[in-house]
Structures are given as structure tokens and as C-alpha cells.
């Protein structure tokens, strides 16, 4: 595992989750006001979730990278 894996975890995954995946969460039935996940429409939930998950993936990238630092 090297720089490539760090880039995949810390960069590719967050970018894919927002740019590619998040638009699929853009659905909401205004008549029934659903679905709400933790009170949020799906897109909002997804975008908020990845604010929390991205640091975890960046931390994995950091741990991989720091092995190569002197």
C-alpha cells in the first residue's frame, strides 16, 4: 500500500461520493414529506454523512502516507 492507495481513500472516494453518488439521493416526496433520515431529506443526509466520513478516509490515507516519511 502506497501513495496510490492513499489517493484512492482520501481523494477518490470522497469525490465520487459527492460528485457521482450524491445526485442519486435527490428525491423527496413533498406530499408525504418523506423520506426523512434523522430529520433530513436524503441528499442532505448523504452530504452531511460524508462530512463525517471523509476525515476517517483521510485519516487512513494519513496513516498510509506517514510510513514513508522520515
Amino acid at each position: 500500500m502506497g501513495k496510490g492507495m492513499a489517493v484512492f481513500l482520501g481523494f477518490v472516494i470522497p469525490w465520487v461520493m459527492y460528485v457521482v453518488v450524491s445526485p442519486f439521493f435527490n428525491y423527496f416526496d413533498v406530499k408525504t414529506a418523506s423520506p426523512l433520515i434523522l430529520g433530513m431529506p436524503p441528499l442532505m443526509f448523504w452530504d452531511t454523512l460524508w462530512i463525517i466520513l471523509t476525515p476517517l478516509f483521510l485519516l487512513l490515507a494519513y496513516n498510509i502516507e506517514k510510513r514513508g516519511w522520515k
Partner: peptide, 9 residues
């Protein structure tokens, strides 16, 4: 978040 993921590198 995207900017930070990019900025990290």
C-alpha cells in the same frame, strides 16, 4: 469537504 480532500494532497 471536496476541497479538503484535494488540499490534503
Amino acid at each position: 469537504t471536496l476541497a479538503y480532500a484535494f488540499g490534503y494532497f
